[in-house]
Amino acid sequence: MYNFEFEKPSSIADAVAALGDEDATALGGGQTLLPTMKQRLASPTKVVSLLGISEMQGICTGDDGALCIGGATNHAAVAAGASAYPGLAALAGGIGDPAVRARGTIGGSLANNDPAACYPAAALGSGATIVTNAREIAADDYFQGMFTTALNEGEIITEVRFPVPEASNYQKFEQPASRFALVGVFVAKFSDGVRVAVTGASEEGVHRWTAAEEALSANFSADAVPAAPGADGMIADLHGTAAYRAHLVAVLTKRAVAAAG
């Protein structure tokens, strides 16, 4: 690790100001950033912890019924506290291990947008709104490919608002080593249609499987899930071919629909 300055502001405004410096980086739970720094792959000159900002912590229900989660809320808190949205709570409870869940945050996960991460599937699958210090971003506009998002330099995710579906489920097929999603599928059934978001599979990062959404919006049953998508553009690596990942997308979508009930 290289030397860096450390700040732990207690308000969003102070955090934004601290992040104004060139090469300053926000720190959530540190589950991605700290290992990267230890390996000397990241060298921020200043690290600004967001964990001292109380308005970025916790879970509540908005006037419109959406579940609002503070940007610095950790996975364990969501697993325990998002009972209004069981599909989301279960997803949070399946991330990493207890130590990771006690540290890692929803804001950090969405900002990082790892192509194998779980939260991006929930946010995109729910049609969530990513609230930052500056604006509100629809999930459909937020995710822009592996490790790429609509966030600007120094912009902080302060809150994530999840519309609560009638039924939902997340199916994660674990990559054997990292236990991130080799493929993960989040299915959410709303009164006006079904959303299906896929993580882990595509070179483009998290994405919606629109063919399945259409079919399931017409008939929400596992049998209605279309044949597996094409393997083109799917990730191929040590842990699975592109064809295998494409196949899993369909299998997991069926399972998610069946489990969502």
Binding site: P176, L182, H239
Partner: peptide, 13 residues
């Protein structure tokens, strides 16, 4: 070996 899910699926298909 390792008989990973991907390899088993490949073998079946």
């Amino acid at each position: 070996m390792p008989v990973s899910p991907s390899r088993v699926w490949q073998a079946m298909n």
